[in-house]
C-alpha cells in the first residue's frame, strides 16, 4: 500500500533533470500517505462508531463489531420521532424560503440601485453575520414570551433572519458578477422590476441562490439553542432537541440514538453531495457558518 516508488519515478519525468528523483520524491510520498492515513483514522473513528452502533442489537459507546439488526432504525422511526423530524422540516423550509427570498430582493437592490450610505449599511450587515446567535436568546426569549410567540413558526422566521446577513452578502456577490446588458434590454422592452427579477436575474443567479438556500437550510436544520429556548410546546419539538433528550435520558438506547442521528443528518449530507455535483464552484461557502 505504501510503496509509491514506481509512481514517484513516473512523475519525475515532467521536470527534466531532477537531481535525486527517486529518494527525494518517494520519502515525500511515503510521508504524505502516512500522514493522510493517520488523519483518515482520526476522521473515520467517530463516524465508524455511529454506523456500527446504528445496526448493533447491543450497542454501547464502545467501538465493536455489531450483532446485526435493523430494529434500531425501526425504533428511530416511531411516530413521535418522525413528528420531531417533521417539525424540523417545517421550521427549516420556512426559514430557508423566507431568508432566501428576502435576502435576494435586498441583495438585488444593493447590487443595482443607488442607496444612500450603501457602504456603511453593507458593512453593518457583514458585522451582523459574525454575531454569535447565543447573544440573541435572552432578548428574544423576553420579546417572544411577551408577545406569546414561543412556538415553531416565529422561531423559523427568527432563524431566517439570523441567516439573512450572510445570504444577502452571498447573493449580492453573485448578482454583481452578472452583466447589466440583459436587464437593461428587458427594461427597454418595458418589463417591470419584478418581471426582470423573475425572468432575467433569478435564472442567472441560480448557483448563488442555491448556495444561499443551502446555507439557510443547514443553519436552521442544525440549530439547537434557539428551538430549545423559544419553542415551549413539546409537540413542536425539533429533531436535535429530541436527540438531546435521548442522549440525556437515564435508560439510553445507544443503537436507537445512532440510527436516529443518522436519519437526522442524512438530509444535510445529501444536500451537499447533490449540490456539489451541480455547482462545482461557488457553493463551497454555503455551510461555512453553521
Amino acid at each position: 500500500m505504501l510503496n509509491p516508488g514506481a509512481k514517484a519515478s513516473k512523475e519525475s519525468d515532467s521536470g527534466a533533470p531532477v537531481p535525486n528523483p527517486v529518494s527525494g520524491l518517494s520519502f515525500e510520498k511515503v510521508f504524505s500517505n502516512l500522514t493522510i492515513a493517520v488523519l483518515g483514522v482520526f476522521f473515520a473513528i467517530p463516524m465508524l462508531w455511529l454506523v456500527l452502533a446504528s445496526v448493533d442489537r447491543r450497542a454501547t459507546y464502545a467501538l465493536k463489531l455489531p450483532l446485526l439488526t435493523f430494529a434500531n432504525f425501526l425504533a428511530a422511526l416511531q411516530p413521535e420521532n418522525l413528528g420531531a423530524l417533521g417539525n424540523s422540516i417545517i421550521m427549516s423550509v420556512i426559514a430557508t424560503v423566507v431568508g432566501t427570498v428576502v435576502a435576494f430582493l435586498a441583495a438585488y437592490s444593493f447590487s443595482r440601485h443607488y442607496i444612500p450610505w450603501k457602504g456603511p449599511v453593507l458593512l453593518a450587515i457583514l458585522f451582523l453575520s459574525g454575531v454569535p446567535i447565543t447573544v440573541l436568546i435572552v432578548p428574544m426569549y423576553e420579546m417572544f414570551s411577551y408577545a406569546g410567540w414561543l412556538s415553531l413558526v416565529p422561531t423559523a422566521i427568527l432563524l431566517a433572519v439570523t441567516a439573512m446577513p450572510f445570504q444577502i452578502y452571498l447573493i449580492k456577490n453573485f448578482i454583481d458578477a452578472i452583466p447589466l446588458d440583459l436587464e437593461e434590454a428587458a427594461f427597454i422592452e418595458k418589463a417591470g422590476t419584478l418581471r426582470v427579477l423573475r425572468s432575467v436575474v433569478v435564472p442567472m443567479t441560480m448557483p448563488g441562490l442555491a448556495s444561499a438556500a443551502i446555507f439557510g437550510f443547514v443553519n436552521a436544520w442544525g440549530s439547537f439553542l434557539l428551538p430549545v429556548v423559544l419553542i415551549s410546546d413539546v409537540d413542536q419539538q425539533t429533531a436535535p432537541e429530541r436527540l438531546y433528550g435521548f442522549m440525556s435520558s437515564t435508560s439510553v438506547n445507544y443503537g436507537g440514538i445512532a440510527a436516529y442521528s443518522i436519519i437526522y443528518s442524512l438530509p444535510v449530507v445529501l444536500l451537499y453531495v447533490l449540490m456539489s455535483r451541480h455547482f462545482k464552484a461557488g457553493f463551497v461557502l454555503g455551510g461555512a457558518v453553521r
Binding site: 488523519l39 473515520a44 455511529l50 459507546y61 436535535p240 442521528s261 455551510g287
Partner: peptide, 20 residues
C-alpha cells in the same frame, strides 16, 4: 471523510464525540 465531518449537524458531532 473530512468534508462529511464538516457537513454533519452539530448535535450529531457532539453525539459521535461523546461516544468516542
Amino acid at each position: 471523510l473530512a468534508i462529511l465531518a464538516w457537513t454533519l449537524p452539530p448535535t450529531t458531532i457532539a453525539l459521535v464525540w461523546i461516544a468516542s
